[in-house]
């Protein structure tokens, strides 16, 4: 489903991704962890070409993402993305936020799009907020709307870049619950997070990054019991003991 082969990326002189090799299969949940600045966001953002790679090969859903002739909008409609800061559209209601892409990209009628939006709002547990504006919602609710917005396009892949990092502790759980449910239903998910409980419980694989490299890749039971890499050990002990 997602295939990185010897991928490198530079920001000017700065080598942000180094020889990335990573395969993610359909239905897999891969959690990416690592210290801040290690390139986790950049890696995830390459998948839907919010960032372009400098060299190597990146294939997503059978498409070479950086090929010249690629219709990027076509590819992106199959990849949902959830951001740390939600990025809901503040001038639109929750319902309008969710229906914009289905209507304008997929050409759905307003009625059909509304029905789908309500279905996913039920799913994330806030159908009563359909006509509210984002500013009237808590962080956890906003993030759940953002997830519903992604799902409404019926994507094959969902990307999450630190979806709970901007949330108050008491609303983190409600967002993680939605994500767990999604994982259970077989969604292909790439998740950058510092929530080790979630990683341990939900991930099929943990990918540990440091300074632009993937240093370790292992199933969670293995990784958390005994990380092979010294830097992964240091990282884990720091994050679990604070």
């Amino acid at each position: 489903m997602i295939y990185f082969h010897q991928v490198n990326k530079y920001y000017g002189d700065f080598h942000v991704l180094k020889d990335i090799n990573l395969t993610i299969n359909q239905g897999e949940v891969v959690v990416i962890i690592g210290p801040s600045g290690s390139g986790k966001s950049t890696l995830v953002r390459c998948i839907n070409r919010l960032e372009t790679i400098s060299s190597g090969e990146l294939i997503v859903d059978g498409v070479k993402v950086n090929d010249k002739g690629v219709n990027i909008n076509e590819l992106r409609r199959n990849i949902g993305m959830v951001f740390q800061h939600f990025n809901l559209y503040p001038h639109m209601t929750v319902l309008q936020n969710i229906t914009l892409a289905p209507r304008k990209v997929l050409g759905m009628s307003e009625k059909e799009a509304n029905e789908i939006a309500m279905y996913y709002l039920e799913k994330v547990g806030i159908p009563d907020k359909a006509n509210a504006y984002p500013s009237a919602l808590s962080g956890g609710q906003q993030q759940r709307v953002a997830i519903a917005r992604g799902l409404a396009m019926k994507p094959k892949i969902m990307l999450f870049d630190e979806p709970t990092s901007a949330l108050d502790p008491e609303t983190i759980g409600e967002v993680l619950d939605v994500m767990k449910q999604l994982a259970k239903e077989g969604m292909t998910m790439v998740v950058v997070t510092h929530e080790m409980g979630f990683a341990r419980e939900v991930a099929d694989r943990i990918v540990f990054m440091d300074q632009g490299r993937i240093l370790e890749e292992a199933p969670p039971e293995e990784f958390f019991a005994a990380p092979k890499e010294e830097r992964a050990r240091v990282f884990l002990s720091r994050i679990l003991n604070h």
Binding site: N48, L50, N73, E74, R76, R77, I79, G80, M81, F83, N87, L88, Y89, L100, A101, K104, V105, A146, R149, G150, M153
Partner: peptide, 9 residues
């Protein structure tokens, strides 16, 4: 970014 990643031009 949110708009483009949902497939809008």
């Amino acid at each position: 970014e949110a708009a483009r990643s949902s497939g809008l031009t």
